[in-house]
Design a protein around this nucleic acid. Structure first.
Lengths: 191, 191
DNA sequence: ACTGTAGGCCAACAGGTGTTGACTTTCCAG
DNA sequence: CTGGAAAGTCAACACCTGTTGGCCTACAGT
């Protein structure tokens, strides 16, 4: 097998189209959720035959799985002073929601997790492996156990109302207004 | 037309089956969302032919509409002292989410609004006609305008994580723990 | 007893879905 | 130049969906 081909980003041709498919899939899953996203639609966006999607990803469920690779990139919070912790969290999540439009994985996950058991399980997993440990390190395991859930509820509530439901009363706020309004609230939960 | 028939609950026979259909529809919409709910499924739950659903409700979208009749029954908050306002709100919403299992309308709405444009529009409407005015009356129109959105985000975030996603870190909390944890947070938003 | 009508059922339609297998084209190693 | 694998296309399948129209049945008003 290819020993001397450099392992650059677009090594083989198939890898590129596979990536194209995945990008199109993320967009549609993010915009419409699991059920309303069709393989034919994804294939059309990627300018490719539907059967290629099957060849590369097996079936719709596995394509969905592939689109759910998520890393929240939570920063290390152990060094942050307690009275700034909440603000750092809010700012970080706003960045993640509004950041790189190609990185819609968070939207995909949340939108689908509401109607799809499998996506919900993935969400549990992400919470357990990424959110909980980070908060436990910053707050100590005891208080984290009782507070991590509520903190997540607050941050996901923001994502829900602003980016999925697009409630005017929330989309109408500026980033600063949200930061100023929500940071004290999360601080209150953390105590 | 029937002039002397008493206007009791189950007046005509058709009204009863219509109600049966609606109950079955609410259950399925609440459990699976709009897309995965099928008319055949609803009809089977109601022990009736699918075509009857069409006869009584026209089409799937109108059946969905009928299932979305929602009244949050928000209490009058003008008499509540400012430092108890948050706690009253949290308690009220917990009651609404966990209350009468037959009254799943809130679940229906939230679960569907995430993937269905029409349900999202209905949510905007409910916010505008029920939540916003109640908060405006209690806080004054100026602060309500900037805070109502964030308060809703907090309460919907709770509903999302506890009743839809069922995050263990949130379902594992008792009612009291939620009340004690969230009330100060909402108070912080209200100031 | 008769009949009209409301309530209910059956069978089918047209369209869209995930998925499959056989076929053709592209392209690189020998 | 040539074989053969990799990449891509085409057409079809089996199934499920919302929706429709014709048919049967029960029953209330006369």
């Amino acid at each position: 097998m290819n020993q001397h081909t450099e392992p650059t980003s677009t090594d083989k041709r198939s890898d590129r189209t596979k990536a194209t498919i995945l990008r199109a899939a993320r967009e549609r899953f993010a915009a419409q959720g699991y059920e309303r996203t069709t393989i034919r639609g994804v294939a059309a966006d990627a300018d490719i035959d539907p059967s290629m999607v099957m060849r590369y990803f097996g079936n719709k469920a596995q394509l969905f799985d592939a689109a759910l690779a998520i890393d929240l990139r939570l920063p290390d919070l152990t060094g942050v002073p307690a009275d700034e912790l909440a603000r750092v969290l809010v700012r970080h999540f706003l960045d993640r929601w509004e950041g790189d439009p190609a990185d819609e994985a968070l939207l995909v996950l949340l939108r689908s997790a509401v109607t799809n058991e499998h996506a919900a399980a993935r969400m549990h997993e992400i919470f357990a492996t990424q959110v909980a440990p980070t908060l436990a390190a910053a707050l100590g395991p005891e208080t984290a156990r009782r507070r991590a859930g509520l903190v997540s509820a607050q941050l996901l509530g923001l994502g829900l109302t602003r980016y999925l439901l697009r409630l005017p009363a929330v989309t109408g706020l500026t980033r600063d207004e949200i930061e100023d309004g929500l940071a004290p609230a999360i601080e209150a939960v953390l105590h």
